[in-house]
Design a protein around this nucleic acid. Structure first.
Lengths: 238, 238
DNA sequence: CCAGTCTAGTTGTCTATACAGCTTCTTGGG
DNA sequence: CCCAAGAAGCTGTATAGACAACTAGACTGG
């Protein structure tokens, strides 16, 4: 069995594994070392390291060498981090309560957004997300009907995204809209809030590896109980 | 005057200018063409193109050539884009109204967040941001007192960030917190909304190139008139 | 007109080599 | 022990060249 993977790619993978078991600022093998070790030219080894540096996993210091980079700052908006991880990051204990989980006919909007065929069905799961036992968010997640097996997953203690991935669909990227709205009667009931209380509303569409729509979700967070931490760069627009 | 700029960097800058005046999928010069045109080796030209591809401005197609990339999806949370640009992106006409602009003593919180000396002053600028003549956001921006010259800038028609940069401080990166809150009486007046209406609230701290705090701003957007478009990746957390 | 082949051109991967400037370590002399 | 110089090693930039695989267009023959 001949391995057709380019040399620089194999070296990059080995370096990524090394970074994963190292601490920030640990030295990585030098380019000449990597070249000797892997039997390639220095320029080939250098290409592998350049990819690592571009990916933010390492940094180079002229004359000194290459080192493991400091992990990026909080990038909630850059990566969709699970509600439970976000709560833990804020020092809070996350939990969930399932309100409803069923297969039903897709609405017209869902059909369009999830690019379903007409007359298709969806898996609709609504949950309340809690932090320290207090309701923080009400969430309506909709998946294509083909993922009906989600209903068999442990939706309370397990990860919904893990369940989706186990069915062969890997959430890869998404777009979202954030705004503020007043709590409806339904929100108020789910979140134990007065109707009209301010909610941070997120509507997101998640695509899988093949750019196929995978999940359409609206999350409505109690403004008084939840905030989103974001880090960003500033464009040079001058 | 000798130019010490590396060849690949000069070629990259020329390509960036070309991308800026091109449409998505327009062909860019091939590597051999660039090499001939700039009198460098093909590998040097290739390094310039590789940087462009890494930056998402171009894509390569084996056998066919290199092309201008489709502009990235909305990345509001990834880059601090000016309110006016964001409004234009949403097809709306932005404008601003200055409510107040003055130097005043810093509060304790401002002193801590902007890392000022005790007894220091700040430049406080409050504005209403409008889209199509309708108030969309109320904004309170605070800068270190050393930037008092901001008060001399054109705050209505000019860019506040351009003014800051002209004073030698380049906004580089920041962190923000997003949540929802009910409009106060002051908000209501500024935004022509009922008190209690839901607002999307953003509090951000912006640092300059030297990681020195530069701007502390709270923006309060009318939920019914503004939304934030975000694109993100999904972490592999399984 | 259509299909197949050839040519010219592209990107992708790689080698070997060279020099510049920087950093760190070692050695020798005071 | 301290300092300076040199050596060894690093990253940064660049060259010239090679071959593989792919694409698009032109040309030729049926």
């Amino acid at each position: 069995m001949t391995d057709f993977t380019p040399h620089y790619h194999r070296i990059e993978q080995a370096l990524r594994a090394l970074v994963a078991r190292s601490a920030p600022h640990d030295p990585l093998p030098s380019e000449p070392e990597l070249a000797r070790e892997h039997g390639v030219s220095r320029m080939t080894a250098r290409a592998a390291v350049t990819n690592l540096v571009s990916a933010g996993l390492a940094y180079r210091s002229p004359g000194r060498g290459t080192f493991v980079a400091v992990p990026a700052a909080p990038r909630r908006a850059d990566n969709l981090v699970r509600f439970s991880d976000e709560m833990r990051r804020q020092g809070r204990t996350p939990s969930s309560r399932i309100v409803d989980a069923a297969v039903r006919p897709a609405t017209a909007a869902e059909t369009a957004r999830l690019r379903l065929g007409s007359g298709a069905s969806v898996v609709a799961i609504s949950r309340v997300r809690l932090a320290d036992g207090v309701p923080v968010a009400a969430e309506w997640a909709v998946f294509p009907g083909a993922l009906a097996a989600l209903l068999d997953a442990d939706l309370v203690n397990g990860s919904l995204h893990a369940a989706v991935t186990a069915l062969g669909r890997v959430p890869t990227r998404g777009t979202a809209t954030l705004t503020a709205a007043a709590a409806t009667r339904a929100d108020a009931r789910l979140l134990s809030l007065p109707a009209g209380a301010p909610l941070l509303v997120e509507r997101r569409l998640i695509l899988d590896e093949g750019e196929v729509p995978l999940e359409l979700t609206e999350s409505r967070y109690a403004g008084s109980r939840y905030h989103l931490d974001v880090a960003f760069g500033v464009s040079s627009f001058l």
